[in-house]
Design a protein around this nucleic acid. Sequence first.
DNA 1: TAGATTGTTAATCGATTAACAATC
DNA 2: TAGATTGTTAATCGATTAACAATC
Lengths: 222, 222
Amino acid sequence: MEYAKVKVANLPSVRRLPAYLHLLKQLEATGLDFVSGTQISQELKLEPIQVRKDLAITGIVGKPRIGFPVTALITAIETFLGWDNTTDAFLIGSGHLGSALLGYQGFKEHGLNIVAAFDNAEEKFGQTIHDTEVFPLEKLPDLAERMHVRIAIMTVPASEAQSIADFLVDAGIEGIWNFTPVSLRLPANIVVQHEDLACGLAVLSKKLQHTQQELDDTACNE
Amino acid sequence: MEYAKVKVANLPSVRRLPAYLHLLKQLEATGLDFVSGTQISQELKLEPIQVRKDLAITGIVGKPRIGFPVTALITAIETFLGWDNTTDAFLIGSGHLGSALLGYQGFKEHGLNIVAAFDNAEEKFGQTIHDTEVFPLEKLPDLAERMHVRIAIMTVPASEAQSIADFLVDAGIEGIWNFTPVSLRLPANIVVQHEDLACGLAVLSKKLQHTQQELDDTACNE
DNA sequence: TAGATTGTTAATCGATTAACAATC
DNA sequence: TAGATTGTTAATCGATTAACAATC
């Protein structure tokens, strides 16, 4: 069988769903029953039509004049993203960033549960970081099979990223959340989500250049 | 004066530049003088034409048949992003993620230097996290002015995000790298880069659903 | 009823991709 | 010279935005 490149309908919409989810949970906490796309758009600084289109992919149906039922909308988004059931994951590389992710409580809210961490550094074996035990990387294949874990979060040094990724795939890992700056070369059936902080920093830097530019221009014109 | 929404040419291209930079530095380390867009595209799994378009925004000029000069291309990207000069930044909120970012050495390579951390928790005042001192948040306005710091990295609890952001803007901060899940409401002249891990997780979750779907479909057809 | 909001269908906009002449 | 690669101009693709009938 040939694996087609995974096609996900409207990726930009999928990326915006967590922002809706966060807002909706806040609104739910205040006891609100219904919210209109217009209200949501104002809170998140989006176009009303974009909100309606985004929410439509989850299958939610709203009431004209009234808006969307808040609780049902939360459920619809969580179900759509598969965040209604908890998925177990491994974390590979217990350095600074890895430790921070182990301490981040927000993942559980998104259906992700880090059940074990792995490292190559002997002095870390058996350590517990934020209630998660660190194992030698070599034990991963066995544990992955026994615990039926399909997802790995990679926070390892760039120099080791490719070889460790290959090792993970051999061990049956199907999805990798890649926090290294390396573009991994893996079989087409492996799902890789590249999370590179430098991308966001590039955009921030560029936008700041432009505002600085504007200020300079203004100064010149005076 | 009215501030127009900051317009940055071809944002997707800007986001890809750090990946080119990382690869090019690797190639430079091997002593390579020239690299073609075709070679780069194979390494990063992109279309050759996309590589050429992306690199063109930096102003680099290549040689037909030969490719692009590696060192000059690195310089062109760094200059384009403003990463050739170091910019000082503050980090607000020294929890798990904040500490991890303080320990992350990669920022310096991208022209970002975190000179001080701030927190509201008294027990952290005076502490040093990865060689960076933690100050009371109330000292920020004074230090921002004296040190001419324009950029803040926000790793604070969601519940405090908006009020702290307002405080930062009052203190003269012009750019905020926002690691909270909150959509901040700030004046239009403030540059905000929202870095929400949940966005990437949403995409990963959705893609994994699809592969699982395919596997289920295959199983059914057998 | 009157009117705000939904959801659909069409138009616009911008990014990606294709085609190809210029060039080293 | 021959041919791979660049850079430009045009075509395609997909996401965003607009328009508007349906509806509560």
